[in-house]
Every structure is written in C-alpha cells, then in structure tokens.
Amino acid sequence: MKKHKLFILILTLGFLLLSCGSNNSEQADLLLDTDAIRTEAVATYASSLTKTLVPVPTTSPTPKIIEPSLTPPEITVTLETPATANPCYNLLYIEDVTVQDGTQMKAGEAFTKTWLVQNVGGCAWRAGFTFNHYGGDGMRGSTVTLTDAIPTGAKREISVQLVVPSGQTGIIESAWRMADENGIFFGDTLSIKIVVGDVTAPTSTSTP
C-alpha cells in the first residue's frame, strides 16, 4: 500500500515537472516571438522614415534679384533759331525834325512826323526796306517803303503821316522802326509822344 502511494506521488511530481517545463518552453517561445515582432516593427518604422524624409538644407538659398535695365528714351529737341537782324544793318536816331515830343494837339488832327536818322551799319539799306509801326498807338499811320538805297554813313529824313486818335486824352505815343526786306527789325526805335487834352506835357524826347 505504501509502495502504491509512493508510486502515485512520483507520477504526480513527474507530471508537474513536465507541465512546468512545457509552460516555460512556451513562455520562452512567446517571449522570443514578441521580441522578434518588436524588432521587425522598429526596423520597418526606421526604414519608412528613411524613405519619406527629405533632407533639409543647412543654409537658406539667397534669392537672386534681377533688376530690370531701364534705358530712358532719348529725347531730341530741335530748337528753332529766331531770326536775327543782319549785323551790318544799323540805324541811329539823330533828332526830331517835326512835332517835338509833348506837343499839344486835338483829336482828329492830322500831322506829319519826321525824324533825322543815319545809316551807321556796314551795309547800305536797299530799296524795298520798310519803316513800320512797332508799338503804341498806330495813329492811322501806314508803312513807308524805301524807293532808293541809302548808303552806309548817309543821313536821311524819314516821315510818316499820322492822325491824332479820337476819344483819348493824355499822352499818346506811337513807335516806329526800320526793317529789311525779310521784315526783320534793326536799329533804334523812333517814337512820337503827343498830348491831347489838359495834361502836363512830357519833357523826354524820342528814345534811341
């Protein structure tokens, strides 16, 4: 009986030992499988990072700014040269021959104004040169055209027919000047100043 109980005890212990060994082996295998899965997962994740990540440059590229080349358009201005008198033409005022400045006159009165002038230029005044109204009141005077040449150094009297304007009082002035055949003025300006009405007469004479 004792032997029978001992045998059963031995069998039980053996079974327990076998059972423990089997469980340890399964646990070890389970642990190995878990470690392998973890290792494989980490490797896969690292591989995915290597494939998807784009390397970031360490320095920022400096943008290249290209400035447009602006060339201003060339502007050409053509200046028109004004006509000037021939330097060899010149007229010098000498004196008033008739109707001195400050003469008292009536409205509508007709008179002849004469100046004495001299050709002081280096060229003769040709026939066709004109003596023209230049400023002030024209006093109904007409342009005078030279019919004969006036040589250099010669003196001549130049006259114009004038009429005192109506409806005006005070000092009335009319200015005249010589011009060549192209209408270009030269020399001194000749003038006449008359007084109409009760006004103090001027003391000045024709201005060269």
Rank of each mutant, 00 (worst) to 15 (best):
35 D>M: 08
86 N>W: 01
21 G>P: 00
21 G>T: 01
194 I>E: 09
128 G>S: 07
85 A>D: 02
133 H>Q: 03
167 G>C: 02
121 G>E: 09
129 F>M: 04
59 T>C: 02
39 T>H: 04
154 A>F: 15
26 E>F: 07
150 I>K: 11
187 G>F: 13
155 K>N: 15
56 V>K: 00
1 M>K: 14
176 W>G: 10
201 A>I: 07
202 P>A: 08
103 T>N: 03
84 T>W: 00
56 V>L: 03
36 A>H: 08
136 G>P: 01
33 D>P: 00
4 H>I: 14
203 T>C: 04
180 D>A: 11
195 V>A: 13
106 K>A: 14
96 D>P: 06
208 P>G: 08
40 E>Q: 08
162 L>K: 11
153 G>T: 11
15 F>R: 00
147 T>R: 06
21 G>V: 02
121 G>Y: 07
25 S>L: 11
87 P>A: 04
51 K>V: 01
147 T>N: 10
98 T>F: 03
120 V>K: 11
138 G>V: 07
161 Q>M: 02
68 P>T: 05
46 A>C: 05
91 L>F: 03
101 D>T: 07
197 G>P: 10
179 A>H: 06
69 S>E: 12
64 K>R: 03
106 K>F: 02
204 S>D: 14
136 G>T: 04
71 T>E: 10
130 T>Y: 00
13 L>T: 14
50 T>I: 00
174 S>P: 12
165 P>T: 09
104 Q>T: 07
194 I>K: 13
42 V>Q: 04
189 T>A: 05
102 G>R: 10
204 S>Q: 11
178 M>D: 12
15 F>S: 15
12 T>M: 11
151 P>K: 14
77 V>C: 03
118 Q>V: 15
140 R>A: 13
69 S>W: 06
25 S>A: 13
159 S>R: 10
179 A>N: 11
127 A>L: 01
89 Y>H: 11
97 V>Q: 08
200 T>G: 13
5 K>L: 15
171 I>Y: 01
179 A>L: 07
23 N>Y: 05
28 A>V: 13
201 A>Y: 09
48 S>Y: 02
63 P>D: 03
53 L>K: 02
121 G>C: 12
54 V>G: 02
31 L>I: 09
35 D>V: 09
200 T>Y: 09
149 A>K: 10
199 V>R: 09
104 Q>L: 12
56 V>E: 05
16 L>I: 08
74 E>Q: 00
11 L>D: 08
104 Q>G: 01
85 A>Y: 04
11 L>I: 14
165 P>F: 05
155 K>P: 12
20 C>Q: 08
32 L>Y: 01
